[in-house]
């Protein structure tokens, strides 16, 4: 079962330079949440703060009644056993083979025999499509493969909270689709709490139960997927629809002049695209955290953009299982 993560008033700065301040959000137990934000807004820093690798200046992170920033190092090591983390670059141990990397947590923390370890490691490697690459060193495989190996290692101890730092960057579109399906299926099976940092708009729109957006040092919005996808808040709307028109510029923020000029020119905001249906688990049975499409909109009296939840916009994304490339079709 998943664990709830309650973040309250979190603030972090480096050498007096604030990265973000006053972030409050709750990752609901067992649900998938996505965290978005322009490059350099501190998403990776946020993940590292959640696992206690960085200490926040202020604020609390409560997990199972424990406030992480106030724990001693020893106690932190205990709490961290709840977590599985996929780092942005995989963070594999460079001196160990892929197999040993994935086996490492089992060898350190369990009393399993080598045969039992082999079974678990092979299962996880098969899941991420890396069977056949066991004997390679991290330096000898591609970035996307390193990432998948990092994922296998993060999942090997059956964590109850899984943090993914850009699982899909550096992956090809087919593998990204498989990875998204894998995330959904994993969530269905383990019911762990997931937090995914991503830049992939398709992932953000179709995978999560909740979406959050960090912008300009603050949490612009955090809530159910339908709430953000139907939001007309300028920043949220611009980011979730990958548009140039809006408050976000190339260098973080457009200045007032530019915005005024944009308003003067009378640039029409394009209409909100329809909300796509959420990616279903591959066996067809619902996830525990899943909510019926359109429920949030109905409950809050929001009319979703026309064409929502019909899947019209995303039809090409859903029948990929018929394709010839399996996740297991890696470097065999």
């Amino acid at each position: 079962m998943g664990v709830e993560v309650a973040v309250q008033g979190l603030t972090k700065s480096f050498n007096g330079q604030p990265v973000w301040s006053d972030i409050s959000l709750t990752l609901p137990a067992g649900e998938i949440s996505v965290l978005l934000g322009p490059s350099g807004t501190g998403k990776s820093v946020f993940l590292k703060t959640l696992v206690g690798l960085l200490r926040p200046d202020r604020g609390s992170i409560v997990i199972e009644g424990l406030d992480l920033p106030r724990l001693s190092e020893r106690a932190l090591y205990e709490v961290r056993k709840l977590f599985g983390v996929l780092f942005q670059d995989g963070a594999l141990f460079g001196s160990m083979t892929i197999y040993d990397n994935v086996a490492f947590p089992l060898r350190e923390h369990t009393r399993k025999t080598e045969a039992e370890i082999r079974a678990v490691v092979t299962e996880k490697l098969d899941m991420v499509g890396l069977v056949g690459a066991e004997r390679k060193l991290p330096g000898e495989i591609s970035g996307g493969m390193r990432k998948r190996a990092g994922l296998a290692r993060a999942l090997v101890l059956d964590p109850r909270i899984v943090l993914f730092d850009e699982p899909d960057s550096g992956l090809d579109p087919v593998r990204t689709a498989y990875l998204n399906q894998l995330i959904i299926d994993l969530n269905q099976r383990t019911e762990a709490t997931f937090l995914i940092v991503t830049h992939d708009i398709n992932t953000a729109r179709t995978v999560p139960d909740n979406i959050g957006l960090i912008y300009h040092g603050h949490l612009a919005m955090f809530g159910p997927r339908e709430m953000l996808l139907s939001s007309t808040e300028p920043v949220v709307r611009q980011f979730l629809n990958a548009q140039r028109i809006g408050p976000i510029g190339m260098a973080e923020e457009k200045d007032a002049e530019e915005l005024a000029a944009e308003a003067q020119a009378g640039v029409e905001l394009p209409p909100l695209p329809p909300i796509p249906p959420q990616l279903p688990p591959s066996d067809g049975r619902p996830r525990r955290a899943e909510r019926p499409p359109g429920q949030w909109c109905r409950e809050h009296g929001v009319t979703p953009p026309p064409g929502s939840f019909t899947g019209a916009e995303w039809s090409g994304q859903r029948d990929h299982q018929a394709g010839p490339v399996g996740t297991g079709g890696g470097p065999r």
Partner: peptide
């Protein structure tokens, strides 16, 4: 080099000092 490749962070997250 382990530090900058985030290996040490990964180790801490895996519960190893």
């Amino acid at each position: 080099s382990r530090k900058i490749r985030e290996e040490l962070d990964a180790m801490q997250v895996l519960g190893i000092d």
